[in-house]
């Protein structure tokens, strides 16, 4: 009769005949775990090409507008730059005090797909002549299947800054004053973005907040102004 294998007991030395098995099992488990780590890290979805340059502050000058989200309209006439605060909040009071005036704003830039945002560190009055308000071009009423995003994370503050995993963060950002936006792809494969306001041009209706980051259909008037699209969204269907 072959003698049975000795058992391993915590408070005794490991039997020599078990050592090889212990090492083999530990090694296999560790190898398997590292394989899972590698596969799971590899298989993460592409978070998109947003950039948040926290190493190089930028200073921009222009006119501060709020339709209703604060935005700097650069004096050179280029597309507006959304202004937000540090953290998940809208821009500081110094920016809000400058709405309707010329300003010099310093902060960390975020950019994705040509859309620009500045996380404001400092804002002072500046005496650039106010640009003529950009013409608002109506693009008709649309129903767009999309996801409501918080623009700061989507433009690069959090990568990925979209999807169901990011929902709580997106809701918190929008509650704090980060402008909500939508992104969708047309039949030709081009991606479009629009800031979301209420039907009257004010902030996005509260009723949309629980549905941020869900797949939804947003219906409303689409307008082009200051280098951005704006969706004046109706309240969601109940």
């Amino acid at each position: 009769m072959t003698p049975p294998q000795p058992i391993y007991v915590l408070y005794r030395p490991l039997p020599a005949t078990l050592l090889a098995l212990v090492l083999a099992v530990a090694g296999s488990l560790a190898g398997l775990a590292m394989g899972v780590a590698a596969a799971a890290a590899w298989g993460q979805p592409d978070p998109g090409p947003g950039v948040w340059d926290t190493a190089n502050a930028a200073t921009l000058t222009g006119h501060v507008a709020a339709h209703p989200y604060p935005m700097l309209l650069p004096h050179d006439g280029s597309a507006g730059v959304l202004l937000v605060g540090v953290g998940k909040v809208g821009p500081p009071g110094a920016v809000l005090a400058l709405v309707g005036h010329g300003a010099r704003v310093t902060g960390y830039p975020l950019e994705r797909g040509g859309l620009k945002m500045l996380e404001v560190q400092e804002a002072t009055a500046d005496h650039w002549p106010s640009p003529a308000p950009g013409p608002a071009v109506g693009l008709g009423v649309h129903a767009i299947a999309t996801e409501i995003l918080d623009s700061k994370c989507y433009l690069g503050a959090m990568k990925p800054g979209h999807g169901p995993g990011h929902k709580a963060c997106a809701i918190l950002c929008i509650a704090g004053g980060i402008p909500p936006m939508i992104a969708w792809t047309d039949a030709a494969g081009r991606t479009h973005h629009a800031l979301v306001t209420g039907p009257d041009g004010g902030p996005m209706p509260e009723a949309w907040r629980p549905r941020v980051a869900d797949r939804v259909v947003v219906r409303g008037r689409l307008t082009s102004r200051d280098g951005w699209l704006w969706m004046a969204a109706d309240a969601p269907d109940p």
Partner: peptide, 25 residues
């Protein structure tokens, strides 16, 4: 080691500008 492998491979595979934020990794 597991966390290091995950973050290391996550950074090596998903490179700027399509990198995953380190806190999310």
């Amino acid at each position: 080691a597991f966390v290091a492998v995950f973050i290391g491979i996550g950074m090596a595979v998903h490179r700027p500008p399509s990198e995953v934020s380190v806190p999310i990794l």
